[in-house]
């Protein structure tokens, strides 16, 4: 692969074994990046994903590590830096979906949602940031959701977690911009697969009624935008949230 948007870069994608994360890994690899990702449960899918990436000529690594396990994250980041070099790109994609109304929401539901999306992004970012500051460059992209930036019929804890990622993005962008590191956020609308698969049919129909393109998005369409956002071609965008929703 030569001449890609990410030629020679090293990317780490959290939650990269399936859904949107897997699509992102694939496009980043196509654009020339060496790609590492973590997963928690889907061992087989992770192996498939790594094989697929390697078959396309990309250096790829998969790590069984929770984004909530600090020591596992640090070990993962250390291994990637040792084997592939400094990490240039981090995509905080790991997430979970759970459709439950507030009235029935358990405290553990809330904590699980917030932990995976927000604390996970914090822990992984902190681990990767050390090298980026040393490098004086880097691209961090947080995967939020339209539910985090607009009023949608979506679970409250999911909306809150995704909105938190927007704040995380803006605060961090301000704090570390001086080191040439940009931090942005992407907010996809409802997609055909991934976490969006949990969206109840009524909500999906409501969404389609308001979407100018009259269809759901695909993970590949989001991954293409991600590849540009984390590339050197996107040098001056910082602290931004890019909504990709077909026009809602």
């Amino acid at each position: 692969m030569s001449g890609g948007l990410l030629q020679g870069r090293v990317a780490l994608v959290t939650g990269g074994s399936r859904g949107l994360g897997r699509a992102i890994c694939k496009v980043l690899a196509r654009e020339g990046a060496a790609v590492a990702f973590n997963y928690v449960k889907s061992e087989k899918q992770a192996q498939d994903a790594v094989r697929e990436l390697r078959e396309s000529g990309t250096r790829a690594w998969a790590f069984a590590a929770s984004v909530l396990d600090k020591s596992a994250i640090d070990a993962m980041v250390g291994t990637v830096e040792q084997e592939a070099g400094p990490i240039d790109v981090l995509v905080n994609n790991a997430g979970v979906g759970q459709v439950v109304p507030l009235a029935l929401m358990e405290e553990s539901d809330w904590d699980g949602m917030m932990d995976t999306h927000v604390k996970g992004a914090f822990l992984v970012t902190q681990s990767v940031l050390r090298g980026m500051i040393r490098l004086k460059r880097g691209r961090i992209l947080n995967v939020s959701s339209l539910a985090g930036v607009k009023m949608l019929q979506a679970p409250v804890h999911y909306c809150a977690a995704k909105a938190a990622l927007k704040g995380f993005t803006e605060g961090l962008a301000k704090e570390i911009g001086r080191y040439g590191i940009t931090v942005n956020c992407i907010a996809p609308g409802i997609l055909e697969e991934g976490v969006s698969a949990n969206v109840p049919p009524a909500n999906r129909e409501e969404y389609l009624r308001h979407c100018a393109l009259r269809r759901l998005g695909t993970v590949d369409e989001i991954a293409e935008v991600v590849a540009f956002l984390v590339s050197d071609r996107n040098g001056y965008m910082n602290g931004a949230t890019v909504v990709v929703d077909g026009g809602v």
Binding site: R130, I133, R178, Y179
Partner: peptide, 12 residues
Amino acid sequence: LHDVIHDVFARG
């Protein structure tokens, strides 16, 4: 101090 903290953090 913020600069120093980040520098120390990065050099680990």
